[in-house]
Amino acid sequence: MELTDYRALLIDCDEVLFDRNSGIWTALQPLLQSCPDTLSREQVLAEYDQVMRGLYPRFSELGFSGLLCFAHRQLAERLGLKASWEEGMTFARSVCDWSLYEDAPGAMLYLRKFYRLLVYGDRDSADREAFCERLGIVSEDFLSPTNKPLEDRDWLLTNDLEPKDILLVCGSSADVSLANGLCLIQRGCSEPHVSGAADFYINSMADLVTQHQQSLRR
C-alpha cells in the first residue's frame, strides 16, 4: 500500500512526537549527580526502561505519574542511591516539560490535511488537556495503549474506521503485533533498518511528510 491509501494515522506520542529519552535523561540529573560511577546516557536509559517494563502491569493501579515515581525510586535502588518520594514525584511531573521534536508540530499541521490524526500514549487525565493542546488534537483523538483501539470493534465502528484504514506510526519499542499498516520512525539512525514487518521505514516526521508528498505525485 501507499501512504495515500490510509485514512488515519495512529501516532506514538513518546517516541515519534515527544523526545521522551531526552526528557527522562534531563529529569534524572539530580539523582545521577550523587552516583559514584560514571554511567552513559544509554546505560541509564536501558536501566530505566527495564524498571518501567517491570512496573507496567501495575499501570491501572498506579497511573502514569505513579509509574514514573516508582520507577525513579527503583532506579535509584538499582544504582545504589537514595531518593525520597518527593524527588520521585518531581521526576514524575517532569513529563509536562518533555519537548516536542522540532519537526513534529509542522508535520502534524501538514498531515491533518490528509488524515485523521490519532495519538496514543500514557498520560494522567489531569495532564491530557494541556497535552492535546500542544499537539493540536481534540481529547477524543488521544488514545491509551491499554484500550487497544485497533482491537476495539465498537470504537472502530463509532469512528467509521476499519483496521486497514489506520497506519500505525511508532518507534522501535512499540507493540506492533496488531498493526495492519506499520510505519517505523527510526530517529537518529544513520543506517535505518529497511527489512522486516514494517510497511514504511522513515527517519523522522519531516521525512514522512516528504514521502507523503512523493506518493501524491505518483
Rank of each mutant, 00 (worst) to 15 (best):
R41G: 08
A92K: 02
L184I: 13
P149S: 04
E47F: 07
P163D: 04
S94K: 06
L3C: 06
R218E: 06
W98A: 03
E102P: 00
N147E: 14
L81C: 07
L81M: 07
M52I: 09
R218W: 12
M89W: 15
Q74M: 08
L100Y: 10
Y201C: 03
R123H: 11
I185P: 02
Y201V: 06
P57V: 01
Q74H: 11
E151S: 13
P105E: 11
D122I: 00
S65T: 01
C170Q: 03
P149G: 04
T38F: 04
R53F: 03
P57L: 00
F91N: 01
S173Q: 14
F114R: 13
S172T: 12
N159Y: 03
L55Q: 02
L10D: 03
E133R: 15
G121H: 10
Y115S: 07
A71H: 02
R58D: 00
A27I: 01
P145M: 02
S99A: 15
E15I: 00
F131E: 14
Q43S: 15
V194S: 14
C13G: 07
E162C: 10
S173Y: 08
P36D: 08
Y120I: 04
V95T: 13
D103F: 04
P30F: 14
K113A: 14
F131Y: 13
R7V: 05
G188V: 10
C132R: 10
L143H: 10
I185V: 15
D12F: 01
V119N: 07
W25K: 00
G106K: 15
I11G: 02
Q214S: 13
L168V: 14
Q213K: 15
A126E: 15
T158F: 07
V194K: 13
D97F: 06
A83T: 04
L31P: 05
D122Y: 15
F18E: 06
A104C: 06
L117V: 14
L117I: 15
